[in-house]
Design a protein around this nucleic acid. Structure first.
Length: 267
DNA sequence: GGTAATGTTAGACT
DNA sequence: TAGTCTAACATTAC
């Protein structure tokens, strides 16, 4: 689930549920997912503190810890999410995949769920300690058209889908949304950047912003993606093109990922 | 039981 | 050397 729009949703969820509550206990059932620090130290440094504010960078959620110079940094991997559970529901609502749990003074708790254990959690003073954050590219919703075109022109030899997926080029786009962006821009995921003309590059920029903004706006609720605009309601389902029911979507491995696209609409 | 999965990365390849 | 691509990682769901 967690690409830019999903992490944006987690950010709002975190703000709504978990700020300014005293942490009284931290539990972890998959200690190797805590990076750069032992769980023992991690726990010790957080107990008694509160989360002050949070923001998103790429696919990372970053949380400022009050009265500390350290930040909690969460990466969700492929199968991560957050779940806040009220004290009265903790016993009845078990989560087999709750890998990290913050317990608050009011009895509630925040669970970091992570089925496949591809996620990571850090506690760092300086975000640059995390290699991927240090090398991370621009935010797609902040980059100007001019900057975006310049980025493309430096990578003419690259495949366009693998470019969009590369966090060092542009932050936060993953497999699902790269497919959506290319579909919206009517660009075939096999294309190399050097084959894209200026019009297509501009279309790509516009599609990227539109797709991400709209997904954020509907908070990634699956049922809210209009069927005649998005691949999401069709991918691995009826496989019909949103633009034309007679077109069949194709699934193909591109850039080592399962790409879904319409060969008739995306040239 | 086989296959696929929304991410990242080390190492292979060109 | 530099740019790009691929396979591997860990675990579960269907």
């Amino acid at each position: 689930m967690p690409e830019l729009p999903d992490v944006e949703k987690f950010k709002k969820y975190f703000e709504k549920t978990s700020l300014n509550k005293k942490i009284v206990e931290v539990e972890c059932k998959a200690k190797r997912l805590i990076k750069k620090i032992t769980f023992k130290d991690f726990r010790k440094k957080l107990i008694g503190k509160t989360f002050q504010s949070c923001w998103r960078r790429g696919k990372f959620l970053i949380v400022k810890v009050k009265e500390s110079s350290e930040k909690l940094v969460i990466h969700f991997g492929m199968t991560g999410s957050l779940k806040y559970v009220k004290s009265e529901a903790i016993k009845s609502e078990k989560d087999k995949f709750a890998r990290l749990i913050f317990k608050f003074e009011n009895g509630d708790e925040l669970r970091w769920l992570n089925i496949r254990k591809l996620g990571k959690v850090y506690l760092v003073k300086d975000l640059k300690e995390i290699k991927l954050l240090k090398e991370m590219g621009e935010e797609p919703l902040k980059i100007s058209k001019k900057e975006f075109l310049e980025l493309l022109s430096k990578k003419e030899n690259r495949n366009i889908k693998s470019f969009l997926l590369d966090q060092r080029e542009i932050a936060g786009i993953g497999n699902i949304y790269s497919d959506e962006i290319l579909f919206r821009a009517k660009i075939n995921p096999h294309r190399k950047i050097k084959t894209l003309n200026l019009k297509e590059r501009e279309k790509l920029y516009k599609a990227m912003i539109e797709v991400l903004k709209q997904a954020i706006q509907i908070q990634c609720f699956e049922e809210k993606f209009p069927e005649n605009l998005w691949l999401i309601p069709h991918r691995n389902k009826d496989m019909k093109c949103p633009r034309n029911k007679n077109h069949r979507l194709k699934r193909e491995i591109i850039a080592s990922r399962a790409a879904i696209y319409c060969p008739k609409c995306q040239k």
